[in-house]
Design a binder for these strands. Sequence first.
DNA 1: TACTAAATGCAAATAAGTCGCATTTGCATT
DNA 2: AATGCAAATGCGACTTATTTGCATTTAGTA
Lengths: 143, 143
Amino acid sequence: MKDMEKKEETGYPQGIKWTKQRKNVYAVLQEATEPLTAVQIYHLSEKLAEGGEYALSTIYRILAAFEEKGLVSKTTWMGDGTVVYELNRGEHTHYAVCLECHKRIALQSCPFAHIHLDQETDGFTVTGHKLELYGYCKDCRKE
Amino acid sequence: MKDMEKKEETGYPQGIKWTKQRKNVYAVLQEATEPLTAVQIYHLSEKLAEGGEYALSTIYRILAAFEEKGLVSKTTWMGDGTVVYELNRGEHTHYAVCLECHKRIALQSCPFAHIHLDQETDGFTVTGHKLELYGYCKDCRKE
DNA sequence: TACTAAATGCAAATAAGTCGCATTTGCATT
DNA sequence: AATGCAAATGCGACTTATTTGCATTTAGTA
């Protein structure tokens, strides 16, 4: 287990205090396959630790701190406004949301990958975008 | 003012009770040039009427009823999750949001107007989409 | 004009997130 | 290894946005 020891000693972005709560939240975000709400992160973090030794307000503060440091980005599901957090991994993902079962399906690629959005609006410099598709997944489709 | 009388008698989508509160909310939404929050609609409706004869909960219920009937659509500003309502007028509008001053600029056209999004995801039938652009408006742009 | 289901007002309840303050804890230093 | 302090945490109170129960009112029909 020397590898794990090594990982314990290093591997965390520096510049902030790495408390056990922060390490757990960070681990939860690394394991996540899609963006999570603060409450989901709260429960998953507690599961990672043994006891119920977390305050929800701490989770909110940790997420705010991570966002400040650029580790995490905070977004909202456009459909219902749910606020979610995810690790900044460089790429971005869009989702298709089923209006029937509310399942979210990640798009394999961004439709704007090769489209220039800049000229859309006069004088506005576009630096990013958010997109959400709506419709029916193959299980819920009406014929 | 015969025109107004006429308008009073007709012109409302049928199938629901047209109370004075609902008429006012409907009028507010018709006059709106962009989506409004429930609280904004609440204040504007009270201004339309004379007295403070509205309950905020009623506004929420009216908006929910309108949404049910397909008169109104409820959306959220993706950036901050603010929930807003607007009349369903057939077309849809996207916005570019300035990260500095938070101004919203309506796009003249939808970038997807002539793009097929259907094939993006296997088996998913796309019926709608939401898009928000981020960046800097011409007043806030950094050189 | 009377009747009834639906709509409203009000106040209390819920949900998501924030904040102040006393206590604890990384972590840099001795 | 022990110390010190700023930063982080826990806890509870608070805010803001929205929902809900219930008694009362009202639109639209019979």
